[in-house]
Simulated assay, not measured.
Amino acid sequence: MAKPHPPKAVLETALYAHNLDETAAFYEHVIGLREVVRVPGRHVFLRCDTSMILLFDPDATQEGGDSPPVPPHGCHGEGHVCFRAKRGELDAWADHLAAEGIEIEADFEWPGGARSIYVRDPARNSVEFAEARLWGFDE
């Protein structure tokens, strides 16, 4: 049997938060993502263009799901997500986040010249905005 080609992109990213409402509100109202699915007390799924941000309560996912049958998963502690942004958008993001009262934890240029901005969501996950050239991708 032939080996499949490597995946072309990440379809979804999971983050964990005990307060789903507060954390989902951050991704909707501050970041601008659109909620697609919500199961109160378990998860909120949000669309980010061609991918999804999945917010799970880490305790609720330890049992897995019944319909569909999803294996148990979850983690405790601070996760990380990085949103792709163009250099010209990073100042606008920094200004927007500051106007929303969200502290910029770090704003710097990497050795290769790509810039990153880091903040925290309400669940303390690290949220980064970075230029795609950070990893050698075109804008």
Score class of each variant (00 low, 15 high):
Phe129Pro: 04
Pro68Glu: 09
Val127Ala: 07
Arg38Gly: 03
Asp91Met: 14
Asp91Pro: 05
His29Phe: 01
Tyr118Phe: 15
Cys48Glu: 00
Gly79Asp: 01
Ile104Arg: 06
His76Ile: 09
Tyr16Val: 02
Gly65Thr: 08
Thr50Tyr: 04
His43Ser: 02
Glu139Thr: 04
Asp59His: 06
Leu134His: 09
Ala24Gln: 00
Phe45Arg: 00
Pro40Arg: 00
Asp59Thr: 10
Phe26Gly: 04
Arg42Ser: 12
His43Asn: 03
Leu55Ile: 07
Asn19Cys: 07
Tyr118Gln: 10
Asp21Ala: 09
Phe83Glu: 11
Val36Glu: 11
Thr23Met: 02
Ala60Tyr: 04
Gly101Gln: 06
Ala123Ile: 04
Leu97Trp: 13
His5Ile: 12
Gly41Cys: 04
Ala92Glu: 12
Phe45Ile: 05
Pro7Trp: 02
Pro4Ser: 11
Ile104His: 11
Ser116Met: 06
Gly79Leu: 04
Arg34Ile: 15
Pro40Ser: 07
Ile102Asn: 08
Ala24Ser: 12
Ile104Met: 09
Ala9Cys: 06
Ala92Pro: 01
Glu100Ile: 05
Phe108Val: 03
Pro58Asn: 05
Val119Ile: 14
Asp95Tyr: 02
Asp49Arg: 12
Gly88Arg: 08
Pro122Cys: 05
Ala132Trp: 07
His96Asp: 13
Glu78Ser: 15
His5Met: 13
Thr13Cys: 09
Met1Glu: 13
Tyr118Thr: 08
Met1Asn: 07
Ala14Ser: 13
Ala106Cys: 03
Leu33Trp: 01
Glu78Leu: 12
Ala98Cys: 11
Pro71Phe: 15
Gly74Glu: 11
Arg42Tyr: 11
Gly41Gln: 00
Leu11Trp: 06
Glu139Ala: 14
Glu63Asn: 08
Ser126Met: 13
Pro40Ile: 00
Arg87Asp: 15
Asp49Thr: 09
Val81Asp: 06
Leu15Ile: 15
Ala99Val: 03
Thr50Gly: 06
Leu46Ile: 08
Pro72Met: 09
Glu22Tyr: 00
His18Pro: 00
Ser67Ile: 12
Pro69Arg: 15
Val119His: 11
Glu105Cys: 07
Lys86Ala: 15
Ala24Lys: 03
Thr23Glu: 03
Asp66Lys: 12
Asn125Cys: 05
Glu105Ala: 14
Lys8His: 07
Trp93Lys: 06
His80Tyr: 10
Ala99Phe: 02
Thr13Asp: 01
Val81Cys: 08
Gly79Pro: 08
Ala60Gln: 01
Ala17His: 01
Lys8Gly: 15
Cys82Lys: 02
Gly101Asp: 09
Trp110Asn: 08
Gly136Asp: 07
Phe108Ala: 09
His80Ala: 07
Tyr27Lys: 01
Val81Gln: 08
Pro4Leu: 13
Asp21Gly: 01
Pro122Arg: 04
Leu15Phe: 05
Gly79Ile: 05
Glu103Gly: 06
Arg42Ala: 06
